[in-house]
Design a binder for these strands. Sequence first.
DNA 1: CAATGTGAAGCCCTTCACAGCG
DNA 2: CGCTGTGAAGGGCTTCACATTG
Lengths: 215, 215
Amino acid sequence: MQTLTRFRRRLPMETLSRLPVYREQLLALSLASVKVASSREVAAKLGVSDAQLRRDLSYLGLFGRPGLGYQVDNLVEKINEALGLEQKWSLAIVGCGALGTALARYEGFAPNNMEVTAIFDVDPKRVGKQVGNAHVQPMDAIQEILGAKRVDIAIITVPASRAQGVADAVVSAGVKAILNFAPVAISVPEGVIVRNVDISSELQILTHLITTGGA
Amino acid sequence: MQTLTRFRRRLPMETLSRLPVYREQLLALSLASVKVASSREVAAKLGVSDAQLRRDLSYLGLFGRPGLGYQVDNLVEKINEALGLEQKWSLAIVGCGALGTALARYEGFAPNNMEVTAIFDVDPKRVGKQVGNAHVQPMDAIQEILGAKRVDIAIITVPASRAQGVADAVVSAGVKAILNFAPVAISVPEGVIVRNVDISSELQILTHLITTGGA
DNA sequence: CAATGTGAAGCCCTTCACAGCG
DNA sequence: CGCTGTGAAGGGCTTCACATTG
């Protein structure tokens, strides 16, 4: 008997952030034709405890078999479902500098049912260039194009000074979530989701941990 | 048995991950000649609570002035100290594809007292090319060069299939920490620190949050 | 017997609320 | 007064431990 919350029980944030990692590992197992795996096997490879893995999975509904383990394909399917990966997602990259360009060429989108459908830059010299599967468009067309292409997520790779302006623009174009690579906090209206990827921060965390020996 | 927490109180991980963000904001204030700021002012701009900010700062030693606020420059200095930014750090980038190249050209290292001193790639066609301030070196020279340059942190931007091999190599060359961009878990000996930056994961977290409306 | 799913305990972090200081 | 620093309370996540199941 599970707490059958008729309406979606909220996933703990920490669990959510581990799901893509589990998914990756399970996809690898699936590719290797592994049909069944125990929580211990999978968890060990990822550096988490088996109890943690089971607890996390229990949030997605129950389906392991005591004495045996979990069916790999079934798990992948459930995780895809939980992450919303059964639908196709449209991404835009705003800022076609070195990082934006690198992301545009990244091949990891398609396997996750995501596609970069638009790229923008302020620099007229960059406009029109083909980068990955799209052509660079001028920044002042951003509202129009994002709306037309029904872009779900904007990836911001502009300099810090421009990040807030870009955020405002993409939000008013109906974008629901932002992945922000600019090293600055951006503010958005309630209901819009922002996650920050800050390479400087990551490095500073490492330098702290090195100096204190606190792995 | 590594718990020598007898003297130095360990910084909570969550606090640590916010310090670089505080630092960034405080540097901006400092640049704007702001001398003193209250926890509320600073916290509001970053979307955290003032209590949180004060608690975090209290781990670094106490120094605000009741009724007034914090001295911006003093705070920056203390945070630099806590993060180990008073010494110079040597970084290496392993994998000179699109992402590795973008990172090599990133200008955010120097202000944090970090420098990319070596770049590696397996592809002979890339070896010798100047990227940022360094020339691409062959992968099989990695051990020798990392040791000679006393590299502290390796940034791994190779394909997933090669990440573990690279990790093993850099660890045996004496690297103390790894920033891993490959979408795969890597395992390292006790004492070596790994942080993962996984863009796919971030996007999947966003798609989940969009579909459940759970900002 | 092997491995799950989960109450219960414990830990860590955040928030509250306020005494106390400049 | 305004704002800090912090005990205490509260909430969320992890771990333990084991009854349960194929």
